[in-house]
Write a protein that binds this DNA or RNA. Sequence first.
DNA 1: CCGAAGCTCCC
RNA 2: AAAGGGAGCUUCGG
Length: 434
Amino acid sequence: MIEKILQPANLSMACREVVRNKGAGGVDGMKVSELEAYLHEHRSTLTEQVRTRNYHAQPIRGKEIPKGSGKMRLLGIPTAIDRMLQQAVLRVIMPRYEQAFSTYSYGFRPLRNTQQAVSKSLHYINSGYQHIVEIDLKQFFDMVDHVLLLQLLYRKIKCKTTMCLIRRWLRAPLEKDGKLIKRRIGVPQGSPISPLLSNIMLHELDTEMERLGLRFVRYADDFSIYCKTKSEAKRAGNQVYIYLRDKLKLPINRDKSGIRRPIHFQILGYGFVAIYQKGVKGKYQLVVNRKRWKSLKAKLKEVTRKTTPMSFDERIKKLHEIQRGWLNAFKYANIKGKLTELDGWLRNRLRYCIWHHWKKLERKRKNLIRLGVPPRDAYAWSRSRMGGWAIAQSPILGTTITKARLIKRGYIPLATMFKTISKNTEMNQLFPMV
DNA sequence: CCGAAGCTCCC
RNA sequence: AAAGGGAGCUUCGG
Ligand SMILES: Nc1ncnc2c1ncn2[C@H]1C[C@H](O)[C@@H](COP(=O)(O)OP(=O)(O)OP(=O)(O)O)O1
Ligand SMILES: [Mg+2]
């Protein structure tokens, strides 16, 4: 197996992956842009070192980054060379595991996405499984037990050299502000193979849940179990909790875990609301959760700030990029109404930018006249002492810089873009060609 | 089919 | 600065 890993073609592809990620360097300071040259020069000595098990993984560089809620996430950044070798290993061992993994596991896996996970969840809920055990593991990557993991790995990987390589990556110390820290547990958040390793660990959990006959969806360390009754849910949650604690040595995150009804359940950025319709009872549909709406709004706000120096066309272009990306991520949610609401707000933001862009009183007056305001009123409004945001919401801009005019100018509202995206994906599902 | 850039999302 | 795995979309080039 190690020969397959070290094959020139495999190494080159591994190298390319690392280079195109454009990540920062590790403890040796080698930039990813220098990696290709390094490989050309030292490929034979490197591969020989690996083959003879004389290759020693370098320490990983520790770097704290903020994660949403004021907490920090400790990244473990391996050197460019280690990242390349890990990519090479990954490309070889990933397929061997893929076939074994559960169909209900969706995170970190090729050809699988959040949409599939969420659809499965919605399907369970709408089939009457509405007591949901939600579990998130505490500090998941940091808590993975090396010994246990290596045992699990050995079941499939009999190649000593490959195992040796992986063991050394797990054992590699973490360098943080000049000090080397020994690690006995944890897969580094930042190593190319870590996500796969984490799935190998939790594959055991998947197997156990399947054995218990549970309906579940797992996305990395975030998983949910769907039950018909509350007592069933309690029992399932307890069994799984015990299994994680005793067999896998993984603690759960008590705040993010519990038993929920669909309306209070959130998964992968989505939420659920009851379908309000005659003759339909106990069915739910997908919406986007509050947090994601907030972050979208914040992003749109950022590019429609008068102080952000950008031309109107640049703003539109930027807005479209953000809109397209976000809408494609949530195209399966029922969010038309909310989008229309946001569109109203966004139009006012744009009016605000335009008004501010006119700057001079005279220009304001002339532009208002050009847009059909009687000269007297135009004069009065142009001298108004109201703040920009108040003006933007006032009827004067609403009737002059109209929705139609904004659209003519090239702006595509969220709701419109959403419709187009939905239509296209619908078409693509019917005719998967083109 | 391959490559570059950009944007979004999940963990 | 800040790493990684995965998914989606857009534009451009071969
Ligand atoms: N940028 C990232 N965002 C979220 N998770 C990441 C990221 N990179 C790697 N991961 C991996 C490592 C995490 O252990 C795992 C689960 O993420 P998450 O539940 O958000 O944090 P956590 O389990 O490390 O801490 P917590 O105790 O807050 O749940 O996903
Ligand atoms: Mg967690």
